[in-house]
Amino acid sequence: MTAERSIVPTGSPPASAHRVAELTPDLLLTEEHQMCPGCGEPLALRVLLDTLSQLGVAQRTVAVMGIGCYTSFSGTMDLDLVQALHGRAPSVATGVKRMLPDRVVFTMQGDGDMVNEGLQEVVHTAARGESVTAVLLNNGVFGETGGHMTATSVIGQRTKNTLEGRDAEYHGHPIRIGDLLATLDGSAYVARGSVHNAGAVARTKRMVRRAFESQLRGEGFSFVEILTMCPTGWFVPTAEGPGYMDDTLGQVHTMGELKARPGGGPSDHASGALAPEARPGGGPSDHASGALAPEARPGGGPEGGVGR
């Protein structure tokens, strides 16, 4: 059918129409980047930058960037910015915020940066209730080095150094960083969204907005984890990225608001605010319990043997 259907010209804007969404977020100096096809990080970037624009805080914002694929956004984001070392962005952001307490300060880190290399930094920054917003782009893989296991890789996930899939007994268990940070008294707002479909993008945008609003109210540490597609690092076709994300990462790192201060105003999610998103075909716990089933634990069955 497609071959026959008439194609609408899309080379230039039509007459008698108004633009409802711009090509490039206001705070991007160029739409060009070197991310792979199907990467979810630019989607998260748009969410972040659009939110800053809409909040009207771009001219009092400092970004602190970690090291990963997304580091290249340092050169394209039209924001005052400090480039940090791998893992260290929360501490650098702490120094920035303490010297510029009336500015909006956020970090952008990947899961390798935040949950592997810099785990204690984000934990302590959250525990101190540092008034910064940490944004985690979590794709469960070291994308920049070419697809290696991180601390958030899920059980069964194939990476270049877990060729048979991540095995809990041999490689350990993934860390649900959002859940961990939500337990700390210093964290005011914690949420986990994703960019694997347009609805998720819209929900994630509300989370990012609420995180920054929490910072503007001075409530403490705010955190938004955004699950992003990495088809290159997952070794799946680009078009299958969203589905793979939902079936793997999304089942362990379940989406939803994990924590919000009572005074933070009503949630856009209404009743579902503090609960994982409902999903068709069974709740996330089904899959999680499958991944962490008793028989898969050490000594629980023949599959558990890895020669240790």
Partner: peptide, 12 residues
């Protein structure tokens, strides 16, 4: 973390 914090303060 100490040196990272100083880094951020210096950047301002």
């Amino acid at each position: 973390e100490a040196v990272g914090m100083a880094w951020g303060a210096l950047a301002t």
